[in-house]
Computed example of a mutant assay.
Amino acid sequence: MKRAFIFPGQGSQSVGMGKALAETFPQAKAVFDEVDEALSQKLSAIMWEGPADELTLTANTQPALMAVSLAMVRVLEAEAGLDLGRDAAFVAGHSLGEYSALAAAGSLTIADTARLLRIRGNAMQEAVPVGQGAMAALLGLEYDAALEVARAAAQGEVCDAANDNGGAQVVVSGHKSAVERAVAIAQEKGAKRAVMLAVSAPFHCALMQPAADAMREALARVTVHAPVVPVVANVEAAPIGDPDAIRDALVRQVTGTVRWRESVAYMASQGVEAFYEVGSGKVLTGLVKRIAAGASATALGAPDDVTAFKASLQG
């Protein structure tokens, strides 16, 4: 059976995430310690004890979610015998989750990934003054229809398709007034729901260009290895493996659309039957079930999940 391992993005965080893993498995504790050291911050304390508003700061959320995902990967390697190079056909991640996927596949060290995500989080937050940008979810419109809504709403401002999540769920991002127009137009076009999202910045749109520039500089300073398993990139919805191509994709990802629907569909078209969401939450598990009919999707985030996964790997 072909498997893919997928890694969650922003929105999957919750206070307490990863704590049980750290208390149960020394391999997980070591990852959280490594991230704390790389950032010169006790990020693990914020993850496990809160406060929630501090965890949801973009600069904290991004490395924190990566830490949980990589802690789980290390536990699966130690306890279940997981070898991504052998056991995975592909890895992929949603937005910041792409960094987790690359770290899991050996392209980036955990310490470098934590530092990159800290830079990314700060740069994305600072790219647009608070209050000027917004994001909205358009539910019940397919991607092409949502794209038309975004174009109609722009009216000289920025309104881009940020996330094509599948299951007729598209997120638009840009200037606040343009995104508000998109919500109204989407409702006129028959969207089931169109709602503004409680986000701190307009991610994955042209307004993020300053953050893309910051990531180009940051990525030039780190070593990127070829991954041990093909990484399906958000902006390509196809696998990449060359280190320069990886850097380029990560830079373009900041302003580009997260092509999640196409990424999952691609992996399914290549014979992937089982998707495993590694880390906090079950958001991607739900999306996969709507995109890849007939494929299984399982979330791996808690100590109890390790035993079940080990049985499935051996079976």
Rank of each mutant, 00 (worst) to 15 (best):
V183R: 14
S263L: 02
A92V: 01
G166E: 07
S312T: 14
M72G: 09
A268T: 05
D164W: 13
S280I: 04
A67G: 06
L21S: 08
N163C: 12
A274N: 15
M17I: 00
L147N: 13
A292G: 07
S269K: 00
A52Y: 08
G50K: 09
V224Y: 12
G18N: 05
R3W: 07
T24K: 15
G279L: 09
N163M: 07
Q209K: 14
S296W: 02
R247A: 11
A64P: 09
Q209T: 04
V172D: 11
F203Q: 05
D112R: 02
L108Q: 02
A123E: 09
F7Y: 07
A211M: 07
R261F: 10
C205S: 15
E157G: 08
L96Y: 02
E157L: 15
M267L: 05
A28K: 02
A198W: 13
S40W: 02
G286V: 06
A89K: 03
D242G: 04
E49I: 01
M208H: 12
V170Y: 06
V170A: 07
G11D: 12
D242M: 01
L117E: 11
E54L: 14
P51K: 05
A162T: 03
A38P: 13
L65I: 15
A71H: 01
A238E: 11
E273D: 11
V195M: 14
V224T: 07
A168P: 04
E188P: 08
L313V: 04
R261I: 03
E142N: 12
A28G: 11
V15I: 10
S40C: 12
E277D: 03
L57I: 05
A308G: 11
E262K: 01
A292S: 02
G166F: 01
S12Y: 09
S107D: 10
Q270M: 10
T61Q: 10
K289A: 07
V183G: 14
N60I: 06
E54C: 05
R247G: 05
R74N: 12
E262H: 04
N163Q: 07
D305G: 06
A104N: 10
I291T: 15
A52F: 10
R181S: 04
H225N: 15
L197E: 08
A67I: 02
F5V: 00
E54A: 13
T285V: 04
G166H: 06
A123Q: 03
K42S: 14
A308Y: 05
K29L: 14
G166A: 03
A78H: 09
P51R: 00
R120Y: 08
A150H: 00
G167P: 13
S263M: 03
R221V: 00
E262T: 04
D248Y: 01
C205G: 13
A184F: 00
A214S: 13
K42R: 15
P210H: 06
P26L: 03
A20V: 05
A220M: 01
A226S: 15
G281D: 10
V251C: 10
L76R: 05
A71K: 03
D248Q: 14
L284Y: 00
V179F: 06
D33N: 14
A45E: 14
H225S: 14
P227V: 04
F5G: 00
E188K: 15
V91F: 02
V272S: 08
A268R: 02
A45R: 14
